[in-house]
């Protein structure tokens, strides 16, 4: 088993963090995992993406030809990565920012207004965690519990209880979104 997940969007949307939290949770669950960021001269404002590979044997290639899940946080990401998603895979589209249609009939598509949900939760920056919640559900490899723990560890707890709590809500919302859809 080797599953690739691509998170993609603008720099500043928490793309790399979402991937890190997933990678950390997978590690704690005993999986082999790699997290590979795109890196460029832009510190902020450019495009960002990262690839997480979760496997039950040591990961070979940290880049994947055909990711099983794509999280497209903006339009350009959808255009760039959606043709590569594996048949039967899942594309999570940020419906708050993406208007274009996905031209794929052989994958599952999940439209979530990530930014609107984040806004509702009172923290615009937690759209990434809403997306991650949905990703974990779609992945079906482990429950949300290790992800909640990993998120807390990544964010750090010192004086950030409020932030942790809102990200927790975000993860839960994303996780249950897919549930509601079914």
């Amino acid at each position: 088993m080797e599953t690739g997940i691509v998170f993609a969007g603008f720099g500043g949307q928490g793309i790399l963090l979402a991937g890190k939290v997933l990678a950390r949770a997978a590690m704690e669950e005993g999986f082999e995992v790699t997290w590979l960021p795109s890196y460029g001269p832009e510190m902020r404002g450019g495009t960002a993406n990262c690839t997480v590979v979760i496997a039950d044997e040591p990961v070979g290639s940290p880049i994947v030809d055909t990711p099983w899940i794509l999280v497209a946080m903006n339009g350009p990401s959808l255009e760039r990565f959606s043709p590569r998603v594996a048949k039967g895979g899942l594309i999570i589209v940020n419906a708050s920012l993406v208007s274009q249609k996905v031209e794929r009939a052989d994958v599952r598509i999940l439209l979530i207004p990530l930014n609107d949900i984040a806004q509702e939760l009172g923290e615009p920056r937690c759209a990434n965690m809403v997306a991650l919640g949905a990703t974990v559900r779609g992945l079906g490899l482990f429950s949300l519990d290790p992800v909640l723990v990993a998120m807390e560890e990544e964010l750090g707890t010192r004086g950030r209880e409020k932030l942790v709590e809102v990200n927790r809500q975000a993860l839960l919302r994303g996780y249950s979104f897919l549930n509601a859809l079914r």
């Binding site: 990678a23 995992v33 590979l36 890196y39 880049i63």
Partner: peptide, 10 residues
């Protein structure tokens, strides 16, 4: 190389 430097693994 850059990939190994940038990537995270357990």
């Amino acid at each position: 190389d850059g990939m190994l430097g940038q990537m995270m693994e357990p």
